[in-house]
Design a protein around this nucleic acid. Structure first.
Lengths: 338, 338
DNA sequence: AATTAGCACTCGGATAGATCGAGTGCTAAC
DNA sequence: GTTAGCACTCGATCTATCCGAGTGCTAATT
């Protein structure tokens, strides 16, 4: 039930506000070449849009600013994805020119690219450790009592744990243990490791290994997986340059939110497929009421792997960010899959 | 040649300024119970101290503030190390209660403890990767063409590299290669790996392995070590709460410095033994002219491993930080060594 | 000779008006 | 339906003023 002219004006106003960060008045809209009606007409239209809840004023006689409802409408109906210039596409590709020897590095670089090109903050969630499956397990002895237990997963992720083994243990025993583990635990999801260890392995172990109890304790401990998420964050400071965050208190509270774990939960609460936008209070997390969150996902060979997120002010360059996050997540998927 | 009274007043003034962050006037000093002379006398003394360069005024009729020379003198001659309360020692120990399965985690937690207890920013430098020696090397095949190369060092650090191998390669070949590498490269410093590979290994390899060239290329690439330093930083945001950084521009520039690599070089330029303090412009790095840097080192079984640093405003609680950084680095060394 | 009381002076910070300009809503004319 | 005109609002900026915490200097006191 918005007239074409109202749609047009709403779009103009959001676009204008996004770059200027100042409330937009009727005069400044009327000045544009593509607007052929007077400030007074515009005032009337804007008053209507305000009445419908799409716009707000910061004070009685100020210009207008989009409300959250306004942004939502804009994002849902007026957002025309922007094309990246060839230069920019080239620059992005350039960031991926080098060979990546670790998957983590690839993800980290993606976060960097995204934060640099959007000028907002990028957060990448890696695959959940718990969902991976064990591919191979290995023990390296460092000295008489210490060693490193290495766990390689099907996705090529490597976890390592410092272990202290009982003095009584012999080198052959260690080898035996590792063989048993590799034999019995291949392709078991990490979250099941401990359970399997207790159920299926303890029997075999008891037969072959001296000092059974101590060894089991040691393994028990080493196979505890904590770190539930891998997080790569880049461009935290970008947000500080935004005019809406010139207040030191806001800066502190926002930075603290970005450091914390809650932001990860917020991101994980986004639908797990496709591109999604949460504007201001649509986010459930306190502290980012004035921010918008855009997420999409990336994968590796068809398998969903993790989430890409950009967080910036509500007054965000939505078209550009949408295009960028989409492009970058595709490049990442491509790179991971090949 | 400062009189006792001047020493006393300088100490009082620094202590006062450190907690209040306000220029200190003669009246407020005279009010103290342990001061038995009048504001006028104090003014005379402070004027002398100022003339000698230990104090400064922010404007003509303001109270006094320590100059860098003043801080330096304070740190060198007046610093009385503070004792931690039993509660605090308990709290610190408490942070280390859990078992650490990775050395990195232990260092990370130490950074956290230090930043929390000092309320400044803690930066820990891990051991230089390049100085470590190879303990064991291992390849895990993920699928037909991809695998993970795992490098374990003598310090128990684990590096992993994604590799793509030529299709022609056979499982036995991989095993042979790894055996050769382990045989020839044990205890070789990481920075020599590539050179050794070319010199000593290529001959053996040529004899035993088909598709020699491709394999060598693959290994060549995998044994390139980049990441020269491990950095753990905690409490970046603590500094923001300090009254001297209430200016958004300062915040941004300081945070950018803390993100950057230069701060690592600055820390590495500190003497490699004992506890050291650099005040304000004594730091060569632009952007931390208003900060002080305190560093010491930690080790593992007698072997120097890395550096602990705290960065805060020049107006820093030196006695407390010195005690804390010392305590914490000892605990870390203890934990690593045992 | 060292200390201190007294006093004029300085300067930053807070407070209160005055002014300006960009904006609005409303009414009446086009 | 559109627009010109006008009274009105409110934040931002500037200015003047005042206050208080501080100083340095001089002269009196110990």
């Amino acid at each position: 039930m918005l007239t074409d002219r109202q749609l047009f004006l709403l779009q103009l106003l959001v676009n204008d506000y996004v770059v200027s960060a100042e409330p937009v008045g009727s005069r400044s809209i009327a000045k544009r070449d593509d607007v052929h009606f007077s400030p007074a007409t515009i005032r009337n239209e804007l008053a209507d849009l305000e009445e419908m809840g799409f716009l707000e004023k910061t004070h009685l006689s100020s210009g207008r600013v989009p409300s959250e409802k306004g942004y939502r409408f804009y994002v849902d109906h007026l957002l025309s994805p922007v094309l990246l210039s060839e230069d920019e596409v080239g620059n992005i590709r350039h960031a991926y020119r080098k060979k990546f020897s670790e998957k983590e590095e690839l993800i980290r670089v993606t976060a960097q690219v995204l934060s640099e090109f959007t000028n907002y903050t990028a957060i990448m969630l890696g695959p959940e450790l718990m969902d991976m499956r064990l591919k191979h397990i290995q023990m390296v002895k460092l000295n008489q009592t210490q060693g490193v237990l290495i766990i390689v997963t099907d996705t090529g992720h490597v976890e390592n744990k410092m272990v202290t083994f009982p003095k009584s243990i012999r080198a052959e025993d260690i080898e035996k243990i590792i063989n048993i583990l590799n034999d019995k635990l291949e392709n078991v999801p990490l979250y099941q490791l401990q359970a399997r260890l207790n159920k299926e392995i303890s029997n075999v172990m008891r037969l072959h290994i001296r000092d059974y109890n101590r060894v089991m304790n040691m393994l028990q401990e080493s196979l505890t997986m904590d770190d539930p998420e891998q997080i790569f964050c880049s461009g935290k400071n970008n947000i500080l340059a935004q005019p809406e965050f010139q207040d030191v208190k806001k800066i502190i509270s926002l930075l603290n939110v970005l450091e914390g774990k809650e932001i990860v939960h917020e991101i994980m609460s986004m639908p797990a497929t496709g591109l999604h936008i949460r504007i201001g209070r649509e986010n459930k997390l306190n502290g980012i009421e004035d921010c918008s969150l855009i997420t999409t996902t990336y994968s590796m060979g068809g398998e969903h792997l993790g989430t890409v997120a950009v967080i910036g002010p509500k007054r965000m360059a939505y078209p550009r960010v949408v295009t960028l996050i989409d492009t970058v997540s595709k490049i990442l998927t491509e790179n991971l899959t090949k």
